[in-house]
Amino acid sequence: MKVKKDFSWLFIFVGIIFMILFGIVSLGVFQESTSIENIDLAIIEVIQTNVTDTKTAFLSILSEIGNIRLSIALTIAFVIFLFIKRWYLAGFWLGGTVLCFAAIGTKLIKKVMGRARPNILPLIEKTTESFPSGHATSATIFYGILGLVLILLTNKYWKKTAVGLAVLVLIGFILMTRIYLGVHFPTDVIGGFLYGMATVFISVGIYKRVLEPLQQVLLRFNIQDRSISRTEGGSSCFPIRR
């Protein structure tokens, strides 16, 4: 008999580690730690060298890849697709994760932290709170979930590696643009990344734990959900056709 491996608790554990790291950075920012200030200034000095109008205009456009409004729009499109395929629980999971944690959660944390935007070399104007970076958070959650899904769906390690690297490069690029444009301290984007990664791993882990019980509940109402949490060849967290 073939025993299927369940890595859901491992995902949750990794997510908790990221959340602890986010808490450490948040505490340092809230207390206006000298170490945090030194880290911010050192990184800003490196990234904001050789500022040009052309580079600023270019990065201002590409930076919007991580815009929360774009992430929400793409999420809505994915959710509609999942519902059409009758992958209802996967749709609610994806939509709920992005809405609750990338949109609402980030705004709440910003209000609690109340950190002002940097005033060193702002190249574009932003007036909302600075920590954590909304672009960093939404990009990490949205692209992170899609990347992790693709990694879990493929059995070839070179493909897993390629997807993982591509997603990290994309997220890292978005984080760098926010620092270059002078709208965020480095610890803002680091905090957004850590919070986003915690959300991705914990959300995927919980999805894998609760999917099958929830499917049984839906069956009582004659609703057949086609989302699955595992494939025969390994572990997956995204729906595929049976």
Rank of each mutant, 00 (worst) to 15 (best):
A136H: 04
T161E: 12
I206E: 09
A198V: 05
L181R: 02
N119K: 12
F83H: 10
I17F: 14
E129N: 13
I68N: 14
V163Q: 04
G96S: 03
N119R: 14
V169H: 07
M197D: 05
K156Q: 05
I179Y: 01
I151F: 07
G164W: 01
L82V: 07
F131L: 04
R242S: 15
V183T: 00
L150D: 05
L108V: 03
I76H: 03
S35G: 14
F173N: 00
G234Y: 05
S203R: 04
F193Y: 10
I65D: 03
V3Y: 12
T52V: 08
I17P: 07
I141L: 03
R226N: 15
I190H: 02
E212M: 09
Q216A: 10
A57M: 11
L121D: 08
A57S: 14
W93V: 09
K2W: 13
I17K: 12
S138N: 06
I24G: 12
D188N: 08
V3D: 11
L27Y: 14
A90I: 06
E32L: 10
R209S: 13
G164E: 01
F201N: 07
I145C: 02
M197G: 09
E129C: 09
A162F: 13
L62T: 08
T137W: 04
F142K: 08
H184K: 03
L74K: 01
H184A: 06
S26I: 08
F201E: 07
L89T: 03
S229N: 07
E32V: 14
E32W: 07
K159I: 15
T199Q: 03
E232M: 02
R178K: 06
Y157M: 14
T106Q: 02
I12V: 12
L150A: 10
G144E: 03
G105N: 03
V200H: 00
V112K: 13
K208N: 12
R226C: 11
S26P: 09
E45I: 09
L59N: 10
V112I: 13
G15K: 01
G144N: 02
P239C: 14
N155Y: 12
E125Y: 13
I17E: 04
P239S: 15
G66E: 00
K2S: 11
A103V: 13
G182S: 11
G105K: 04
I151A: 05
I61G: 04
G95Q: 01
P118G: 06
L153Y: 06
A103R: 12
G147A: 00
V51H: 05
I36P: 06
I141D: 00
D40W: 00
I202K: 00
G66M: 01
I76F: 02
A90H: 01
V51D: 09
